[in-house]
């Protein structure tokens, strides 16, 4: 999968995080440096926030 050129910073450890070219808002990615779970908050320009913690009623 093609990666975006301008990798946004991880909000936890500031490492650059590669995201797919077909990324979508609210998609979950992982920082490969600190293993934080991150949410794509914007695609253009790419930006990340810490993903919400799993809640008790989450599931399928």
């Amino acid at each position: 999968m093609q990666k975006v050129m301008n990798a946004p910073e991880c909000p936890e450890c500031a490492a650059p995080v590669s995201i797919d070219a077909d990324a979508r808002v609210s998609e979950i990615v992982e920082c490969l440096d600190c293993r934080s779970e991150l949410e794509i908050s914007s695609v253009t320009p790419p930006s990340l926030t810490l993903a919400p913690e799993v809640e008790e009623d989450w599931g399928e």
Binding site: D22, R24, V25, S26, E27, A51
Partner: peptide
Amino acid sequence: LASRVRFEEKQIMA
């Protein structure tokens, strides 16, 4: 409707 776009949601949207 999804707050968390996982593999499944991304595949369905695509």
